[in-house]
C-alpha cells in the first residue's frame, strides 16, 4: 500500500488509475537496492528500464580520473531507457546507487502484458521514456558543442574535460 501511494505521487504516472498502478506492482514488484550497488555497467546487455521510487543513482561515463558524471537520477525518474525495446543492446553508461533505493524493473514483456489488458501504465512510461531521452540527448549535444566551440576558439583543449564536468553538474 505504501509503495502504491508512492507511485500515485509521481508526476510520471499522473493520470494513470490506482487499479492500473496496482496491476503494475503485481508484475513488477519493488526491489530494494543497497547504496554503492552497481545497477548497470557500460557494455552490459539488457533491455529493461528502471523506475526509481526512492533513493538516488549516479549515471557516469569513463573510469578513474576520466570519470564524467552525467546525471543524478532520483524518485520518479527513469534509468536504462536507451535499451528499451532494443533486445541485445549494450548499456552505454554506468549506473551506481548513491543511497539506499527502491526501484521497479520493467521490460518490453511487462509493458506488452499490461498494454494487452488496456492498462494505462505503458503509455505513460513510453511517453516519459521518450521525453527523458530527448532531454538527455539535447543536453549532451549542447554540452559537447559548447565545450568544443570554446576549445577550438582558444586553440587550447586543456580544461575542456573540466568544463564538460561543470556543465553536467548544473
Amino acid at each position: 500500500m505504501q509503495v502504491l501511494q508512492r507511485l500515485l505521487s509521481l508526476p510520471l504516472v499522473a493520470g494513470v488509475s490506482e487499479p492500473d498502478l496496482d496491476a503494475l506492482l503485481q508484475v513488477a514488484p519493488p526491489v530494494a537496492v543497497d547504496a554503492e550497488t552497481l545497477l548497470m555497467n557500460a557494455g552490459d546487455v539488457g533491455d529493461d528500464i528502471v523506475l526509481v521510487l526512492d533513493g538516488g543513482f549516479a549515471v557516469e561515463l569513463g573510469e578513474g580520473s576520466a570519470t564524467l558524471p552525467l546525471a543524478f537520477v532520483g524518485p520518479g525518474e527513469i534509468l536504462g531507457e536507451a535499451a528499451l525495446f532494443r533486445r541485445g543492446a549494450a548499456r552505454s553508461a554506468r549506473v551506481r546507487a548513491v543511497q539506499p533505493s527502491v526501484v521497479l524493473r520493467l521490460d518490453a514483456g511487462v509493458l506488452d502484458h499490461l498494454a494487452r489488458q488496456g492498462n494505462g501504465v505503458p503509455r505513460a512510461i513510453e511517453e516519459a521514456v521518450m521525453r527523458t531521452m530527448a532531454r538527455r540527448i539535447h543536453d549532451s549535444v549542447q554540452a559537447i558543442d559548447g565545450v568544443l566551440a570554446s576549445a577550438l576558439d582558444t586553440e587550447e583543449p586543456k580544461g575542456a574535460l573540466q568544463r564538460l564536468r561543470e556543465l553536467f553538474r548544473r
Binding site: 557500460a42 561515463l61 569513463g62 564524467l68 552525467l70 531507457e81 536507451a82 535499451a83 528499451l84 525495446f85 532494443r86 543492446a89 549494450a90 552505454s92 553508461a93 521518450m130 531521452m133 530527448a134 538527455r136 540527448i137 549532451s140 549535444v141 559537447i144 564538460l164
Partner: peptide
Amino acid sequence: LGSQLQAVNHRLG
C-alpha cells in the same frame, strides 16, 4: 531516440 542516445554517450565517452 535509443540509438541516438547511445551514439551521443559513445561520443561523450
